[in-house]
Computed example of a mutant assay.
Amino acid sequence: MTKTTNTPLQVIATPAAITLMETLKAKYGELMFHQSGGCCDGSSPMCYPRGEFLTGDSDVLLGELEGTPFYMSRPQFEYWKHTQLILDVVPGRGGMFSLEGPEGVRFLIRSRVFQDEEIGALREAGRI
């Protein structure tokens, strides 16, 4: 939940994800994430240099992680809007276009379903 309201955050990051983001920022500058719903690389959170991936009306800004915007395709958001996304890191190779590939780790989304009170707060805030 945010400190100023009872609206829960729709995307959060683990300490491991934040550490990897800091490493990538040092190498590539400001970052952005996009989570689409496609197959293959599209089912993983993709990390890009900020502005390299163009977003539009078909994308939803879920929030920011340490100042880094995290987008999701609108069709995918319709399936996941009742779920908090948790950006994490695991060993392995990520998407071929995602910046973490050479690091030997990949970003991964974990999730949890919002509780009824949280869903109500998101509705009240116009987020879902």
Score class of each variant (00 low, 15 high):
2 T>D: 12
5 T>D: 14
5 T>C: 05
6 N>W: 01
8 P>K: 09
8 P>W: 10
8 P>E: 10
9 L>T: 04
10 Q>R: 15
12 I>E: 10
12 I>T: 15
14 T>S: 14
14 T>D: 06
15 P>A: 08
15 P>N: 10
15 P>E: 13
15 P>L: 01
20 L>K: 13
23 T>D: 10
24 L>D: 03
25 K>L: 00
26 A>Y: 00
26 A>T: 06
27 K>R: 15
28 Y>F: 15
29 G>M: 07
31 L>W: 06
31 L>N: 03
33 F>W: 04
35 Q>A: 12
36 S>M: 05
39 C>D: 11
39 C>V: 11
43 S>W: 08
43 S>F: 07
44 S>L: 15
45 P>Q: 06
45 P>C: 07
47 C>F: 08
49 P>D: 02
50 R>E: 13
54 L>A: 15
55 T>V: 15
57 D>K: 14
60 V>W: 03
61 L>N: 07
61 L>R: 05
65 L>R: 05
69 P>G: 02
70 F>N: 00
72 M>T: 06
73 S>N: 06
74 R>P: 01
76 Q>A: 11
76 Q>C: 07
77 F>P: 03
82 H>F: 13
83 T>L: 04
84 Q>L: 02
86 I>D: 07
86 I>C: 04
86 I>P: 06
87 L>R: 02
90 V>S: 03
91 P>Y: 07
92 G>I: 06
93 R>G: 10
93 R>D: 12
95 G>S: 15
95 G>Q: 06
100 E>C: 00
102 P>C: 05
103 E>L: 06
105 V>Q: 13
106 R>E: 02
106 R>D: 01
107 F>A: 00
108 L>H: 10
111 S>C: 08
111 S>D: 09
111 S>T: 11
112 R>C: 07
115 Q>D: 13
117 E>Y: 09
119 I>A: 02
121 A>Q: 11
122 L>W: 06
122 L>Q: 07
127 R>D: 00
127 R>G: 03
